[in-house]
Amino acid sequence: CRSRRSPQICQQANLSLLALDSPFSVNEVEALYELFKKLSCSIIDDGLIHKEELQLALFQAPYGENLFLDRVFDLFDEKKNGVIEFEEFIHALSVFHPYAPIEEKIDFAFRLYDLRQTGFIEREEVHQMVAALLMESEMILSDELLTMIIDKTFADADSDKDGKISKEEWKVYVLKHPTLLKNMTLPYLKDVTTAFPSFIFNTEVED
């Protein structure tokens, strides 16, 4: 905002613009700004979310490697500059809105699981993700069982049997198994102003 008006008015204009391009109202964008501020000052108070801050929020600890956290962070960090800005935060959360188009959720999940960004979810990537999940949840599965699970998944999802799941195959597969997209919807986003009641003391906008 380059206006000579007060910073509050500039910020209001920016939030309104963000709301226009999202499923959120201005009030909801303001409420999400409260969440963003909280997350972005948890370790380094610079108004940006660093990976360690997202990790702290999701795992209650800012250290340790987690493949899925890395993938989520990469997709939120659209500019690929190592931090999540508020605009990027709103863009990515828009996909998780209960009323966001299912195609956006399908695409986001595909990009999440396409670890090497080849345009396909490869068998090796699925193996890597299941192994990471087992490590994270301290579960132990025999190699044989793990292979069976992956075989079964590919038998269902990889319809042309080329050993990798294309975007089209992924779409058909998740539409057949919609529970796989369950974590792509955050019911909180439908009523975000209730989730952050503190924001109502700050708002200057009537929805």
Partner: peptide, 26 residues
């Protein structure tokens, strides 16, 4: 559900790193 009837993505989707709902729970 036994592990053999599970599919890999069902397992993967239970990761805490993919559960963004926890951002709103504190």
């Amino acid at each position: 559900k036994t592990p053999v009837t599970m599919n890999a993505f069902e397992l993967i989707s239970t990761s805490q790193g993919l559960n963004l709902g926890s951002l709103f729970e504190k």
